[in-house]
Design a protein around this nucleic acid. Structure first.
Lengths: 106, 106
DNA sequence: AGTTCATTTAACCGAATGGTTGACGTTCCG
DNA sequence: CGGAACGTCAACCATTCGGTTAAATGAACT
């Protein structure tokens, strides 16, 4: 169990609540990418994409290594484990046979 | 796998990004509660709490049954499964031995 | 009928969000 | 050196958010 402090959990869930940011994470799952590479698929300014990346960094979901003039971004999955664990608490509510039974009775 | 449409995923993660709303869900995990009961633990107006509950309803995380003048709220866990599944895609990144190895090398 | 209880709605406020444009460092390259 | 490439920063704008108070709805209890 990876216990995550509540403010960190706020930042993680908030970061995940945006489709652009989720797509960026998917993209980083394949390989590390520069800010420009990350921004390329989206119809928005580089500055806007940069803000999204900073939101991901605030959540601890993305790390950055500056090499020369390019900033290399990589997936930092640890906080996701925390969010995953938080959700797992409720797993019994959607997997329990009791839940299925209740669904049938209603 | 419970595939969740992206807008629904937006609403779910956004709903989870607030500590008040997460606490309300915890509270509903114990038993169904009225709006007033849900609002009681928090230092905010009933109207504010009502808005939080509506955010949870928009995400599909909470259902409501109006009986008389009281609204009974219950946990609706299905969308959580979707969010949980979305996160599970990244699970390999925080559980893989490769990840641990990379951590050591860095 | 009148009042009280449970909750929503409406109007408003300040702060944060997601986007833009333009100016500004750096770094690479000729 | 001079310029292009990569990215951030600052200012601005419209929208959303999380909260407030006050008024409105609807059900229940004398």
């Amino acid at each position: 169990m990876v216990e995550l402090m509540p403010e960190r959990l706020d930042a993680v869930f908030h970061a995940l609540a945006d489709p652009t940011r989720r797509a960026m994470l998917r993209s980083l799952a394949d390989e590390e990418k520069s800010v420009g590479d990350l921004a390329a698929p989206f119809a928005m300014s580089l500055a806007a994409a940069s803000k999204h990346i900073k939101a991901l960094e605030r959540a601890g979901l993305v790390g950055r290594t500056v090499r020369g003039r390019t900033h290399l971004c990589r997936l930092e999955p640890a906080p996701m484990a925390g969010a995953h664990d938080w959700l797992a608490f409720y797993q019994r509510f959607w997997t329990s046979r009791l839940d299925v039974l209740e669904g049938l009775l209603r």
